[in-house]
C-alpha cells in the first residue's frame, strides 16, 4: 500500500490533475506565507546581475537591489526539484536529447544549441516586455481573474501555436 503510493508519487508519471493541484496550490500558499505572487521570470534579472555584475543598467539597479533575493532561491529550488524528481524516477542523466526535435531534425550539436538559445532569448525578452510568464501571468494572474493576464496568455498561446507549427512543417517533416 505505502509502496504503491510512493511509487505513484516518485516513479509513475503524474496525471494532469496531480500536477495542476500542486502547482495551483502554490498561488494561495505563497500569498499566505510571504504575501508574494507566484512568478519565475523576473528572477532572470537577478541572474543577469549575478553574471554581469559590472554592467551599469538602470532597470537592473532599480529592480534588483538585492542580488541574491528570494527569486534566486526559487530558481535554485526549481532546478533541485527537477533533479530530485529525475533521480527518484530513474530518469536522471546528462542527455543531448530534446524530444522529437533532436530525434527527427538530426542537426549538428552547435545548430541545436543556437536553436534553443534563440528560442530562450525570445522568451526572456518577451516575458519582460509582457510583464511575466506562464507562472506569473497564466497561472497566478488568471487565478486572480486579472484581465491583463488573460489577454497576455491568449497571445502567449497564439505565438506558441504559430512557432510550433512552423517548426513542425519546416524541420520536423510536417506529420506528428
Amino acid at each position: 500500500m505505502i509502496a504503491a503510493i510512493l511509487r505513484s508519487i516518485f516513479v509513475e508519471p503524474w496525471p494532469f490533475w496531480a500536477g495542476g493541484v500542486v502547482i495551483g496550490m502554490l498561488v494561495p500558499l505563497l500569498y499566505y506565507y510571504f504575501n508574494t505572487a507566484l512568478g519565475v521570470s523576473t528572477g532572470y534579472g537577478n541572474l543577469v546581475k549575478i553574471i554581469l555584475p559590472s554592467k551599469n543598467l538602470q532597470w537592473i539597479k532599480a529592480k534588483f537591489a538585492e542580488t541574491w533575493s528570494w527569486r534566486v532561491f526559487f530558481i535554485i529550488g526549481i532546478v533541485l526539484g527537477g533533479l530530485i524528481s529525475s533521480i527518484f524516477s530513474g530518469n536522471f542523466g546528462f542527455t543531448a536529447e530534446m524530444g522529437r526535435f533532436t530525434s527527427i531534425a538530426q542537426w549538428p550539436a552547435p545548430a541545436n544549441a543556437v536553436y534553443f538559445f534563440v528560442g530562450g532569448s525570445l522568451i526572456g525578452l518577451g516575458a519582460r516586455i509582457a510583464g511575466g510568464c506562464t507562472s506569473g501571468h497564466s497561472i497566478h494572474g488568471i487565478a486572480n481573474l486579472h484581465f491583463s493576464s488573460i489577454a497576455v496568455t491568449i497571445f502567449f498561446l497564439i505565438g506558441g501555436i504559430i512557432a510550433a507549427n512552423t517548426v513542425q512543417s519546416l524541420f520536423l517533416g510536417g506529420a506528428w
Partner: peptide
C-alpha cells in the same frame, strides 16, 4: 511582448519555469 514570448515558447518547448526543471533533469 506576449507574442514574442509565445514564439520562443513554441520554438524551444520550454518556459522560464520548466527550463529550470529540464536543467535539473
Amino acid at each position: 511582448g506576449a507574442a514574442i514570448f509565445g514564439i520562443g515558447w513554441g520554438i524551444s518547448g520550454a518556459c522560464p519555469g520548466t527550463v529550470l526543471t529540464q536543467v535539473g533533469e
